[in-house]
């Protein structure tokens, strides 16, 4: 299962890519595979402020529902509107078109605290 280098990862199987002070967030290929066919993604409102680990949305597949937890705190500055009509993007392109939200990162230290790709590979290997 692909773990992309250069991204940061949470223990809840979310990835974060930093673009300036904005973090783009999605779920990993491993998480998408575990869920199976994603059928719906519930997103927060743009402008909402999330704290670290706050549940901000829900990803629903045919057989399971998972809460999404903020890997870092910050203000929601964008959500992936395309997922409303094409939730399957989460399965087909989890690190690209399947992204979920953009947060203006409040505390850069929280990004540093996330895992790098190798540490995340270790996490999913350990199951």
């Amino acid at each position: 299962m692909e773990v992309r280098d250069g991204l940061r990862y949470s223990d809840d199987h979310e990835w974060l890519r930093l673009e300036g002070d904005v973090g783009v967030i999605g779920i990993t290929a491993y998480a998408a595979d575990q869920l199976g066919d994603v059928v719906f993604v519930e997103m927060p409102a743009v402008g909402a402020t999330l704290t670290l680990h706050q549940a901000f949305g829900v990803v629903e597949s045919v057989k399971a529902v998972s809460d999404l937890y903020a890997p870092v705190g910050g203000e929601v500055v964008g959500v992936n509107e395309a997922l409303a009509g094409r939730p399957e993007l989460v399965n087909s392109d989890p690190y690209g078109d399947g992204w979920m939200v953009k947060l203006r990162v409040a505390d850069a230290a929280q990004v540093d605290a996330l895992k790098d790709a190798d540490a995340y590979r270790e996490l999913i290997r350990a199951g």
Binding site: V39, F40, E60, S61, V62, K63, A64, V65, D67
Partner: peptide, 13 residues
């Protein structure tokens, strides 16, 4: 359909 919201999967949520 949309069964994932139901009690047998979502339990307390």
């Amino acid at each position: 359909t949309m069964r994932a919201r139901e009690q047998d999967i979502r339990r307390e949520k």
